[in-house]
Simulated assay, not measured.
Amino acid sequence: MSIRDQLGKDLAEQADAATGGLQTVSAQVTDVTDEGTVHLLMLGSQFYDVACTDAYRNRAAGDWVAVRRGAVPVVLWRLGDDPQDTDEDHITEVAKDAAQDLIAISAFTWGTGAPGSGFQQVTTLWAKKDGAGKGVLYAQMTSVPDTSPEAPATRAPRTVKISPTDSGTWRRGRPDDYASTPTQGAWTSLGDRRGGWFYGTAIASACAGKSVKAMTVRFTRKRGSGVNGKVKMRFYLHNHTSAPSGQLNLGDGPETLLSLAVGAKGTATLPAAWRTALASGSARGLAIYGHGRSEYAALTGGTLTITFNA
Rank of each mutant, 00 (worst) to 15 (best):
D192Q: 09
S205P: 00
Q46S: 09
D252C: 03
Q120C: 11
N309P: 06
G133N: 06
T53Q: 08
L41R: 12
A132K: 02
A139N: 05
I203P: 06
G173P: 08
W274V: 03
A127Q: 13
A12D: 13
P271K: 01
S180W: 12
S282M: 04
T154A: 14
S117H: 10
D130A: 02
L137A: 15
W170C: 00
L76R: 05
H238R: 01
T181H: 07
A51K: 13
N249Y: 03
T154Y: 03
G251C: 09
K9Q: 14
Y296S: 03
A18Y: 03
L190G: 13
A151Y: 05
R275F: 15
A95V: 06
Y289W: 15
A208F: 11
I105F: 10
P254F: 05
S2N: 07
D130G: 02
H39K: 02
D54Q: 15
M1N: 07
I3P: 04
A208P: 03
G246Y: 00
D252M: 09
E35N: 12
P73W: 05
G116K: 05
A186R: 08
A60S: 12
G224F: 03
R293N: 10
Q84K: 14
K213N: 13
A243D: 05
T300M: 10
Q184K: 08
T216S: 12
R293W: 14
R194G: 01
F108L: 12
W64H: 15
T267N: 04
L43P: 03
L190K: 11
E35C: 08
T181W: 10
A27H: 00
E88D: 13
D176T: 08
A114I: 02
A287I: 01
I3F: 13
V50R: 04
A202K: 10
D176G: 13
K222R: 14
A98S: 13
E295L: 01
R293K: 12
Q184M: 10
G135K: 03
L237T: 11
L258Y: 07
A277N: 09
Q120N: 14
T201W: 05
D54H: 12
A107L: 15
V231R: 11
W110I: 01
D97G: 15
S180L: 15
A127V: 14
R78P: 07
K230Q: 07
R171Y: 04
G70Q: 05
Q247Y: 08
A186Q: 12
T220F: 00
P157S: 02
D82S: 06
Q46F: 08
W126E: 13
T142W: 08
Y289I: 06
S45F: 11
V212D: 03
A186T: 13
G209M: 07
I288F: 09
L248A: 06
L190M: 15
R218T: 15
E255R: 12
G292L: 04
A17I: 10
M1L: 07
D166A: 09
R172V: 09
W126N: 12
P271M: 02
L190R: 14
Y236H: 11
E93M: 13
